[in-house]
């Protein structure tokens, strides 16, 4: 039983930390920079597609940035 106490404590400390660092919301008018193409998650869709295909064919790992994508017999 005694081992459960620290775990509960751990979770509450974690939650406390999360709420303590809850940041100020960024107002809609502050989304101006984020609306720029260079601030998009993938600023160049074609670069991202070519890179994904290149590394898929040369390495054993795949995925992470998105789900899906065309199959390829190259690996």
């Amino acid at each position: 039983m005694s081992s459960r106490v620290p775990r509960v404590l751990g979770i509450s400390i974690l939650l406390g930390t999360l709420s303590a660092c809850s940041f100020q919301p960024v107002q809609p008018w502050e989304h101006d920079l984020l609306a720029q193409k260079k601030m998009q998650l993938q600023p160049s869709a074609v670069d991202a597609a070519l890179d994904e295909h290149t590394y898929f064919s040369k390495e054993a790992s795949r995925g992470g940035a998105g789900a899906g994508g065309g199959g390829c017999g190259c690996n």
Binding site: V26, H31, L33, L34, L41, G63, G66, A67, G68, G71
Partner: peptide, 27 residues
């Protein structure tokens, strides 16, 4: 050959200059 993917992600605007994303992708 069959391939299935599942993606869960969160994207958060941290400030006017910062954007973060975290994804979990199971396949």
């Amino acid at each position: 050959k069959h391939v299935y993917d599942l993606l869960l992600g969160i994207t958060q605007v941290m400030s006017r200059q910062d954007l973060v994303q975290f994804n979990i992708n199971a396949g």
